[in-house]
Amino acid sequence: MNIFRLTGDLSHLAAIIILLLKIWKTRSCAGISGKSQVLFALVFTTRYLDLLTSFISLYNTTMKIIYIGCAYATVYLIYMKFKATYDGNHDTFRVEFLVVPVGGLAFLVNHDFSPLEILWTFSIYLESVAILPQLFMISKTGEAETITTHYLFFLGLYRALYLINWIWRFYFEGFFDMIAIVAGVVQTILYCDFFYLYVTKGESGSNKINPA
């Protein structure tokens, strides 16, 4: 464990908690893409099946359970509890265009052709594009609530910190996982446009960002 990975995990946890609290406190999921949240729940489910097969550390197990719990709680709030506030007309990204190619790629490019490893690879590839429905929805509505932009900032920051963690681990441990690194680079690049808006609009204090 290094400071970049720890900060990255905490940033990821912060994003997940920010979103869950935002929906819970405002009792509304307006502006939130339910499709992205379903994809994230799928990412955690397929990646953390090893909870059943191997124990790495208390930290690892605890965080995985928290991530899975929060992901499903968020999906529940969006599609059940606060269903009336779900903005389905703007959450129209065709997720099958993400899941099918990612599923195929996981079969073609992986470390080991075993079920757990294929699912892990699927989850890594899926996570890199899972935010697209949310970014697409924001571009369609033309605005995002401030709290949603903080959620996206921490979510984008987490994988950027992981990139530094992988540089650190390659240099100090000789460890590197090409699949995770390539997917992580793609994932972080997808946030660049948003990061730019977040920083520039954030300074001007406007309470909404308007992606081009």
Partner: peptide, 10 residues
């Protein structure tokens, strides 16, 4: 091979 290749990251 999979056992050797443990994914220790979240």
């Amino acid at each position: 091979e999979y056992d050797i290749y443990k994914h220790d990251e979240l």
